[in-house]
Amino acid sequence: MAKKNESLLRMLFEAPWWVSVLISGFSYLFLNYIFPRLLVSDAMVSQAFLNAARDLSPMVALVFLFPAPFAFLRSYISKKRLENTSSVSDIAKLDWMEFEALLGEFYRQQGYTVKQKLSHSSDGGVDIKLTKDRKVSLVQCKHWKKQKVGVKVLRELYGVLLDSKADKMIVITSGEFTIDAQQFAQHKEFDLINGVQLVSMLAQTQQSNDTVNIDISTQEYGTPLGNRKPIETTSLSTCPKCGSELTLRTARKGSNAGKQFYGCIGFPKCRYTRSK
């Protein structure tokens, strides 16, 4: 029983904060109003259980409510981290747990149901499990600053993919993949995403509520070399505000949809734009 309670509480810490609030409220109502109706009213033992349930209801509700502020804080920090990560150097400053939390928040904002366990325990080749439109994708995160992800890693993950019967395996690294790894991933249900591609993906989410939006998706930037679509941004000059590079982008929303402009790659820290 202790293990089940521990597992439930851990799930609440990782779930959205409002899940704890709902379960807390339901447990209080159940013990005070629903549970009494299930008991035989004329039995002394039932009255004893009723009194005990009512006495315990505030404590049980508080136990289930306890993870809510921590879950809220975790979500807030993850969203802020996503907003402030705009370069490969920003990613390099993260530790492995922050890196995985960043990716989990990214996919949540893309509409995926995200299941991840941020702990030191063995993950079996899966750091994040994504579900969307009845399709399941597995994500393995490699926060390697110097070492490249090689073909040996992908062979092991391919076995995990086949055993799990998932639709896709996504491997994300803060660094690079070896040529052998890229060749191995071709014609298999793999998406390989390196540090530069990841920054481009994050930029899409960071600008999703703005008028201008980079036309970037996981599908375009996650495929192996040789199958990848051309990148739609090209470097041009430098930003007069922060000195970063300017890239040619295409507006996807608003009155300027379809028009091209130059924007700073330091977005959202720098919002400088210039018409083409």
Rank of each mutant, 00 (worst) to 15 (best):
S164G: 06
V21N: 08
P268H: 02
S24M: 06
G25H: 10
W18H: 15
L38R: 14
F70D: 01
K165N: 15
A61W: 07
S121V: 07
E6D: 14
V212L: 12
S86K: 15
D133H: 07
A92P: 01
K142H: 12
W144K: 15
D55V: 13
I265Y: 02
L161D: 09
P16W: 00
S235R: 14
A2N: 11
K145L: 14
C264L: 02
Q110N: 11
E6M: 10
L157Q: 05
I193M: 07
P230L: 05
E245F: 01
G125K: 07
L157M: 04
S87K: 04
F72S: 06
M201C: 15
L12M: 06
T233D: 05
D191E: 06
G266D: 05
L82S: 03
Q116K: 14
V149L: 07
V171C: 10
V212W: 09
L31K: 13
L154M: 08
G195V: 09
D191V: 00
Q47R: 13
L94S: 05
D90S: 06
A185Q: 01
W18Q: 15
G226E: 04
V171Y: 10
D42L: 00
L103W: 03
G266T: 01
H143L: 11
G150S: 13
N32M: 10
D55R: 11
F49H: 14
S57H: 04
W18G: 10
F267G: 08
Y33T: 13
A53R: 12
V171D: 10
C264M: 02
V114M: 06
F35R: 11
S122H: 10
M201Q: 10
L29G: 15
I170N: 07
E245Y: 02
E6H: 14
K129N: 03
V21Y: 06
R37E: 13
D133C: 08
A52N: 09
K115A: 07
L8A: 13
A257Y: 01
G226D: 08
E83P: 03
T218A: 09
D163Y: 03
L118D: 02
S275G: 08
I91P: 13
F66R: 00
T234L: 07
F35H: 11
L198S: 06
V196F: 07
L236Q: 13
F26C: 14
Q140N: 09
F49N: 07
L8F: 06
V45R: 14
W144S: 14
D215R: 09
R108V: 07
S27M: 12
L161Y: 05
K229C: 02
A2C: 01
Y262R: 12
T173D: 03
V136L: 06
I91W: 02
G104D: 02
L38V: 11
M169E: 02
C242Y: 01
P36K: 04
E156Y: 05
L202S: 06
S255C: 08
W144G: 12
F30R: 01
L12F: 11
Q109I: 01
K229I: 01
